[in-house]
C-alpha cells in the first residue's frame, strides 16, 4: 500500500510547497509512490488519515501549537520543509525585537488584535523525524528525503559547511570578492547555489552540528566587519538556533 502523504503550512511564504508543485512531470512519478491526501497547492480533497506529514513554515502563535500537535498525533513521520520550519528562518528576525514594539510597527493602534510570540522552528513544538533544509528547499533534496523515507532509511543530510560544495563547484570565495559569507558555518546540501549564482551564502540551512563560530566571527572581522556587524550576520537565519 502506498504511504499517505499530507502537506501543511504555518507562518511562511509557501515557496517550499511551490518547489514541490514545480516538480512538474516528476510529480506524476511521485504520485506513483505515495498517495497525496492533502496538498492545497494542487488538490481540493483533504483527509486526516496520513502517514507522512510535510510541514512548512514557523510556529509564531500559541494557537498554532495545537494544530501541530494534532499533525504529530496523526502522522507516523513528520518532516519539516524549508528554513522557517527547520530552523525558524527569516521569521526569527523579529525575535530580536520586543514583540509589542513589532506589533505596533506593523499594526499601530490595532496591535492588540494580533497575537504572536517568538517565531520558532517546528521541532521547538513537536519532535521531527526528518528535515528538508533551505529557503526555499530544492526539488532534489526533497526527492532525496522522500526516497529515503520510502526506503525506510534516515535521510542523510550533510553535516559539513557550504564551503565543501563551493570548492567542488570551483567558486571564487565570497571573501575574496569583498562579500561577507556565512558559508563556513552553514550546513551544506544546497550545492552552494547562491554562490554559484554570483553572490554569497546567507545561512538559510542553519548551522552545522559543531560550528566554529568564534573562528567565523574572527574571519568576518579580519575581512573588515566590526564585531557587532559580524554578530549581526548570524542573526539573519540563526536567530532561533543561537538562542538555544
Amino acid at each position: 500500500m502506498k504511504p499517505k502523504v499530507a502537506f501543511f503550512d504555518f507562518a511562511g511564504c509557501e515557496g517550499d510547497q511551490l518547489q514541490i508543485a514545480n516538480l512538474e512531470e516528476e510529480i506524476l512519478d511521485l504520485l506513483g509512490q505515495v498517495e497525496v491526501v492533502s496538498f492545497r497547492e494542487v488538490m481540493k480533497e483533504h483527509s486526516d488519515n496520513y502517514d507522512i506529514a510535510f510541514v512548512e513554515g514557523s510556529c509564531t502563535r500559541l494557537q498554532d501549537e495545537d494544530r501541530l500537535k494534532q499533525i504529530r498525533k496523526n502522522a507516523s513521520i513528520v518532516v519539516a520543509i524549508g528554513a522557517c520550519a527547520t530552523i525558524g528562518g527569516i521569521n526569527s528576525l523579529k525575535n530580536y525585537q520586543d514583540t509589542d514594539v513589532v506589533k505596533k510597527i506593523v499594526y499601530g493602534e490595532n496591535a492588540h488584535l494580533f497575537d504572536t510570540y517568538l517565531a520558532r522552528p517546528i521541532d521547538a513544538v513537536i519532535p521531527i523525524d526528518a528535515y528538508v533544509h533551505g529557503c526555499p528547499i530544492t526539488k532534489d533534496e526533497f526527492l532525496h528525503v522522500v526516497k529515503s523515507l520510502l526506503l525506510g532509511k534516515k535521510p542523510e543530510i550533510p553535516n559539513y559547511p557550504v564551503c565543501v560544495e563551493c570548492k567542488k563547484n570551483e567558486n571564487v570565495c565570497a571573501f575574496e570578492r569583498e562579500e561577507f559569507c556565512v558559508g563556513p558555518v552553514t550546513r551544506a546540501g544546497c550545492n552552494s547555489c547562491c554562490v554559484n549564482e554570483g553572490t554569497k551564502c546567507w545561512g538559510c540551512r542553519g548551522l552545522v552540528d559543531n560550528p566554529n563560530e568564534n573562528s567565523q566571527k574572527e574571519v568576518l572581522v579580519e575581512y573588515g566587519l566590526s564585531v557587532d556587524d559580524a554578530i549581526d550576520k548570524f542573526k539573519l537565519y540563526f536567530g532561533w538556533e543561537k538562542k538555544k
Binding site: 504555518f10 507562518a11 511562511g12 511564504c13 509557501e14 515557496g15 517550499d16 510547497q17 511551490l18 513554515g57 509564531t60 502563535r61 498554532d64 528562518g89 527569516i90 521569521n91 528576525l93 523579529k94 530580536y96 525585537q97 514594539v101 513589532v102 506589533k103 510597527i105 506593523v106 499594526y107 494580533f114 504572536t116 529557503c135 526555499p136 546567507w202 549581526d232 539573519l236
Partner: peptide, 30 residues
C-alpha cells in the same frame, strides 16, 4: 493567517539585505 511582521523585521538590517529578506514575504511572487 499568522502575521509575519516583515516591516518590523527589516528595521535595523542593512540596505544590501532588504531584497533578500522581503523576497520571503511570498514564495509565489518572490
Amino acid at each position: 493567517e499568522a502575521p509575519r511582521f516583515f516591516e518590523a523585521m527589516v528595521v535595523g538590517r542593512n540596505w544590501n539585505e532588504l531584497h533578500h529578506i522581503t523576497s520571503r514575504i511570498c514564495g509565489i511572487c518572490s
